[in-house]
């Protein structure tokens, strides 16, 4: 099987320094960069599937030139090679452009499965994988908690998380899957993996390499951020210490005052 995994470099949420720059775009210099969390679950699932069924995992990233640093981390987990779409004309790209570009790059690979995170920690629109599926005319199996391909039958089954549990959904391959943390924790790269990642190939593609008409001229994006501000802080609350019984009484008083009990 060939599995393409969308891996987006994002500011490390754990570093706590994500912010927008004066142009209301993500300030990429403010934070160390990591592979988007949900994309790591996708990558881990892809690696396990290839270990079970054979084949290769290819990571696909649209990012500035230094995006290769983060791609090396994904390669160190065990991906065979990378595709890096990078072009100055894509700085600040909107969702439709991102979808067109990723679909064009993925479309050059004869893949069985295309996996991506359910959403990203810096964008969180959660629409990229669905958009790429639609653009490629492929079925989408979204919000995956478990992935079970049957390569002989050319089908894949996914447990799709629902409000009540999960739905078992099925589609013919090739198919596109959006991935959640319920797939299981990603592995840590081994030292051997880190060494090997240095020599794994990353193919760089410019916009022109992928075809015409993928991005609007002069960055005329369909959407733009016009203002950004810090979130409104809540009014300072009250702190309670003391015995559990006293604390319980205080909580009960507090709730009763607000007619919550």
């Amino acid at each position: 099987m060939r599995i393409v995994v969308l891996t987006k470099p994002v500011p490390d949420p754990a570093a706590g320094a994500e912010r927008l720059g004066p142009d209301n775009r993500l300030d990429r210099a403010a934070s160390p960069t990591v592979v988007n969390g949900n994309d790591e679950y996708a990558l881990e699932a892809a690696l396990q599937l290839v270990e079970a069924h054979g084949g290769e995992v290819v990571i696909l990233t649209m990012a500035p030139a230094n995006g290769t640093e983060t791609m090396r981390k994904a390669l160190a987990m065990g991906a065979a090679r990378g595709i890096h779409v990078t072009d100055d004309a894509l700085a600040g790209a909107d969702l439709p452009t991102t979808i067109r570009v990723l679909a064009a790059a993925a479309g050059q690979e004869a893949f069985d499965l295309l996996l991506g995170g359910l959403d990203t920690s810096d964008g969180a629109g959660g629409a990229v994988t669905a958009g790429v599926a639609a653009r490629l005319g492929l079925p989408l199996l979204s919000t995956a908690a478990h992935i079970e391909p049957d390569p002989a039958a050319g089908r894949v089954r996914v447990r799709r998380l629902s409000a009540k549990g999960y739905d078992l959904v099925e589609a013919p391959m090739p198919a596109v899957i959006s991935c959640t943390q319920a797939l299981g924790a990603p592995r840590y790269p081994s030292l051997k993996g880190i060494m090997a990642a240095r020599s794994r190939p990353i193919a760089a593609h410019s916009l022109a390499d992928l075809g015409d008409g993928l991005a609007p001229a002069d960055g005329a994006w369909a959407t733009r951020v016009v203002a950004a501000e810090p979130p409104t802080a809540r009014a300072a609350g009250r702190t309670v210490t003391g015995s559990a019984t006293d604390a319980a009484r205080e909580i009960a008083d507090f709730l009763a005052d607000r007619r919550l009990i």
Partner: peptide, 9 residues
């Protein structure tokens, strides 16, 4: 956006 660190228009 950004995990609650900013509000955008």
């Amino acid at each position: 956006v950004l995990g609650g660190r900013a509000v955008t228009e």
